[in-house]
Design a binder for these strands. Sequence first.
DNA 1: TAAAAAAGTAGACATCGTCAACATCGAGGA
DNA 2: TCCTCGATGTTGACGATGTCTACTTTTTTA
Lengths: 199, 199
Amino acid sequence: MIKNIQQRYHHGDLRTSLIKATVEMINKQGVEAITMRSLSNWVGVSRTAAYRHFSNKVDLLTATATEGFKQFSLALRVARLDYSEDELGRFRLMGQAYVQFAIEHSAYYGLMFSDASIQKTDAFDEASSAAFTELVDILVTLQEANKIKTEDPKMQANFVWSLMHGFSSLLINGKLQHIDDLSKEMTYLDQKIMASLVE
Amino acid sequence: MIKNIQQRYHHGDLRTSLIKATVEMINKQGVEAITMRSLSNWVGVSRTAAYRHFSNKVDLLTATATEGFKQFSLALRVARLDYSEDELGRFRLMGQAYVQFAIEHSAYYGLMFSDASIQKTDAFDEASSAAFTELVDILVTLQEANKIKTEDPKMQANFVWSLMHGFSSLLINGKLQHIDDLSKEMTYLDQKIMASLVE
DNA sequence: TAAAAAAGTAGACATCGTCAACATCGAGGA
DNA sequence: TCCTCGATGTTGACGATGTCTACTTTTTTA
C-alpha cells in the first residue's frame, strides 16, 4: 500500500519546496519572520531536514534570491521577445516588466537586493549579472540600429537600471508619496527615459 | 571623589551612545551582527539597560534610522544653502550630496531604506518625508524661477529621487558593474537629469 | 530631606540556528 | 533476490539571543 504523501519519510523534492515556502512566508510575514523551524514545519518535515540541502539559513536565503534573479531575467527576456513590437517598443516593455515583477514578487525582489540576509555566491552573481546583461544587450542592439544615442552602453544601462530599481524599491516600501495613478507615473518615467536616450 | 566614567552606575547619555554604537557596529559588521548584548557590552553597560530607552531591538534600529534621516536631510539642506552657486547649481549640489551621504554613511543609508529591520513610526515617517520635502521644495522654486520645465513637481521629485536612490543603493551593494570613475558616472547622470528637467 | 521617578543590573525562560549521532529509504551490484 | 551504501530525514543537545520580572542604585522633586 502506498503511503500518504504527507507521511512519507522522504519528502521527494524538499529543496524546491523549501525555496517556495521561503517565498510564501516572506510575502506573508516578511524576512525577519523566517525561521528554519517554522519553514520545516510548514513543509511538513523535521527541524533540521533543510540542512541536507542548504548549509545554513543564509545559504537557503541566498538560493532563494538566486532563484528570484532567474525568474526575473526570464520575465525581462519574455518582454524582449514580444515581436508584436519593434525593438524600441520591446525595450519599453522590459521597463514595464521590470516594475511589474518587483510589484508582483516583492518578496523575491526585496530579498534579491537585500545585502543583509544574503551572502553572495558564484551562482548568485551569475544569476544577478544575467539580468543586467539582458539590459546592456538590448541597448547595444538599439545603438547599432540607430534607434538611440551612441554612448557607452554600460553607462546607459546603469542609468536605466538605477531609475528602475530606485522606483521599484521605493514603490514597494511605500516611500514614494502621492501616487494615485501608477500607470501615469510610469508613463512619465518612460518619457524621461526615451528623451534621455533618443537623439 | 568622582568615579571614573566607565564605572559609574548611570551612564549619562545611554540613548545617544547606543545609537552611535549601532551605527559603528553596522559599518563594521553589518546589521545581522547587531545584538542587544554585544551593543550593551560595547557601550559598557549591562545586557538589558537598553530597554530603559528603547522598547525592543526593532525600536532601537528604527530610532537609529530616524536619526539617519535627520542627518541626511541636514546634508541636503547644507548643499541647498551653498550660495556660491545659483539655484540650479545648488540643486545639482544636492544630487552630489545625496550620493556622497549614501557612500560615507552606508550603514545609515542601508538601514534607512531597509524594510526588514525597521518598523515605521510617526517620528520615522516625519524624518523620512522631511528629506523628500527638501527635494520637492527646490523643484517648485526652480519652476517658479523658470529654470526648469513646468510639470507636476511631485512627479519630477519621484523621478529624481528614484534615480538617486537606485544609483546609490546599487552602488553601495556593488551591483553596478564596471565603475572605474565614479565622478564620470555621476556627471553622466547629472547631464541626464538636467536634460530631463530643463526645457 | 523623604519619597518617587529614572536608570541600571541580574535571573530566568522560550526560541533560534545548528552540530552530532541515529534511523529510514531507494538504487544498484553480488 | 538480497545486501549494502549513499542520500535523506529525525531526535537530542547546546550555546546565543531577545526580553520579561524583580531588584538596586542614583537623581529629581515636592
